[in-house]
Measured scan of single mutants.
Amino acid sequence: MASQGTKRSYEQMETDGERQNATEIRASVGKMIDGIGRFYIQMCTELKLSDYEGRLIQNSLTIERMVLSAFDERRNKYLEEHPSAGKDPKKTGGPIYKRVDRKWMRELVLYDKEEIRRIWRQANNGDDATAGLTHMMIWHSNLNDTTYQRTRALVRTGMDPRMCSLMQGSTLPRRSGAAGAAVKGVGTMVMELIRMIKRGINDRNFWRGENGRKTRSAYERMCNILKGKFQTAAQRAMMDQVRESRNPGNAEIEDLIFLARSALILRGSVAHKSCLPACVYGPAVASGYDFEKEGYSLVGIDPFKLLQNSQVYSLIRPNENPAHKSQLVWMACNSAAFEDLRVLSFIRGTKVSPRGKLSTRGVQIASNENMDAMESSTLELRSRYWAIRTRSGGNTNQQRASAGQISVQPAFSVQRNLPFDKPTIMAAFTGNTEGRTSDMRAEIIRMMEGAKPEEMSFQGRGVFELSDERAANPIVPSFDMSNEGSYFFGDNAEEYDN
């Protein structure tokens, strides 16, 4: 993207840094990872977990959730003011799984939030270390993106479920800051804005008074975040219109849905970061690795190297396929839920299948599930090659597409044709070009129609051997075009429920 120079890199967003050079960025990201790792080690000690239990991804998720809940100030305040039966607002906890007599047992633990905050700050040299908290939120978000298709949420806001490739980060909490905003897809931002506008339509006082002023500035800020994701002048001009509207209503909703559809071809720039579970960072720190000293990046080879040398386990339900569970977590670790499966298959070195073909449910185990038949197995999170994460949407291309997802959002900077089903997408653009945004709409449609099938995206960008740390010898991959490109292809993934 041309304006790259004016933006802070995501590592800076990730670490609240002012302008830093590459070495400083690597050190501050490393410091953040160190903090998460030290916190995780301490929690495993508190909970008396064995090494194996500490490497269980379900335990990692519970521990991450506990610290996120302990620092969720708004919710904590709300819980104190609106006490609900049987919930102690000062405590947080969740299921911890232990191996007892050759069987997995679930144990519900409860801790004072104050105590968890103390352990977290102690692991982070006394700081609140917001960057580390956001990092864990993005890992949870990436896992949700890989596990669930947001059909219901899309339909509720009037969008087409086939636009799911635009929904990265749709389950990120509001408090995820600049680093969170960077990884949100165009569809996620559109959905947040539509929800806001709908509230304004239904509630006369939404934009009024002292609160209304705050609401208005939040609305304009979200519009600017979305505008910054678009790469064409016409899309940005249309966002200006939406932002400046005196009284946002149905016309703005129409414009936003139009823009979301246009992003299936004229893709937005959305950041991709490899955020790993805390149970990967903990053992690495415990083994003596100093992330701050060595430096770390979320968008280069580092996460690949770390996963190459990590042992992570997962509980497996009786009829689940461990290899499929591994694929789910591998995609989440690489922030690749909406990437082209052919690119992923090449990088991973084994075939990556669409969601609907995987015999696996989510990673988390519900409290009512029976533990008797639970097994555990090693997650295979290694890769054959590594590639640089991208934040450009890439230019655009036609490809055989599917009944489910009709476009992709690249996660890796790797040369390819970008699949999208042009006739299906263009069919949504018939007729409606009147109104105050008509010239911009016409211009956007013209650009979409001009998108050429034979153009290559990320020209000359390749993948790298894991021994090639400096990215000196790019390998331009070859793809098996007979395979499906979309992950949520004609899909039956479970729906995400809060």
Rank of each mutant, 00 (worst) to 15 (best):
C275T: 14
R150W: 12
D340E: 11
M105E: 07
R118K: 15
T215N: 10
A323W: 00
T171G: 07
Q20C: 00
M239F: 01
W104D: 05
N125Q: 11
I41G: 13
N498A: 04
L68S: 12
Q235V: 03
L154F: 02
M447I: 15
R121C: 12
C44R: 11
A271Y: 10
Q364S: 09
Q327N: 12
Q399G: 10
K87I: 05
G209K: 08
I96E: 05
I225M: 11
R470P: 00
Y52K: 03
A284N: 07
G450Y: 14
M447K: 10
L358Y: 08
V270K: 07
I301Y: 13
T171P: 01
Q12Y: 02
C275D: 06
G356T: 04
T147I: 13
G249K: 07
D340G: 12
D203V: 03
P303I: 10
F429L: 10
L344F: 10
G209A: 04
F488C: 13
K113C: 03
N211V: 13
M447H: 14
R150C: 08
I197L: 03
N247G: 12
T424Q: 12
T188A: 14
S287Q: 11
G187D: 05
K325Q: 11
S176V: 04
V190M: 13
K198P: 01
S314Y: 07
I301W: 10
V476S: 00
E81M: 06
V312E: 08
G17K: 13
M167R: 04
C44N: 11
G187Y: 10
M440E: 05
S287L: 05
M481Q: 07
M137Y: 06
I197Y: 03
G54Q: 13
S314D: 04
G295T: 08
Q398R: 15
G295H: 07
S60G: 14
K229H: 13
R267Q: 07
S353E: 04
D491Q: 01
I225P: 02
D372F: 07
Y148A: 04
G356D: 09
F488G: 01
F71S: 07
A234C: 13
D160M: 09
Q459Y: 03
P161N: 04
N395M: 05
P318R: 10
L68H: 14
K452L: 14
R361I: 09
L379Q: 03
S165P: 11
K229Y: 03
E443G: 09
N124E: 10
S367F: 06
A85M: 02
M66Y: 05
R355H: 09
S269E: 03
I63C: 14
K273E: 10
T23N: 12
L61Y: 12
E455H: 11
R117W: 08
K293P: 07
A284V: 13
A411Y: 00
M32R: 05
Y52E: 10
G93H: 04
S367C: 05
R261G: 08
G356L: 06
R117I: 13
F39W: 15
E294I: 03
M222D: 02
S407F: 00
W139D: 05
R317E: 04
M196K: 06
S269T: 14
P354C: 14
G94P: 04
D203W: 06
N370M: 07
D439I: 15
R391F: 04
V183W: 02
E465S: 00
L264K: 11
I36V: 13
